[in-house]
Amino acid sequence: MSGHHISSAKFLWGVAIALFILTFITVAVTWIHIPSPWNVVVAIAIAVVKALIVSAFFMNLYWDSKFNVLLFVMSVAFFLLMIGITLLDTLYRTDPIPSF
């Protein structure tokens, strides 16, 4: 069981620096004004990469048991399910907010 993975200090610093660089990139891309909707796509894509880096190497999911990975994946999947199905309603209403 690899529950006790010990990362080297160098490695942890490397991960953090990668995250700092990605943070800079995500701010920098707003300066060049990518046309919508691609600006959202880029911003989310960078955030997803950062989140994956944190969960894999800071939270040690990369070395962890498969079930813990599954839990993480499941939570994201059910969040996507919730938003996906809700959008089936909110995007396709004839009147966005029914008046009362």
Partner: peptide, 21 residues
């Protein structure tokens, strides 16, 4: 987790959502 909208058939959600639910 996929069926919650059947409580809302008459609540004014979109007909697409109604059919899927």
């Amino acid at each position: 987790f996929l069926v919650w909208g059947h409580h809302m058939f008459t609540a004014g959600q979109s007909s697409l959502a109604n059919m899927v639910f």
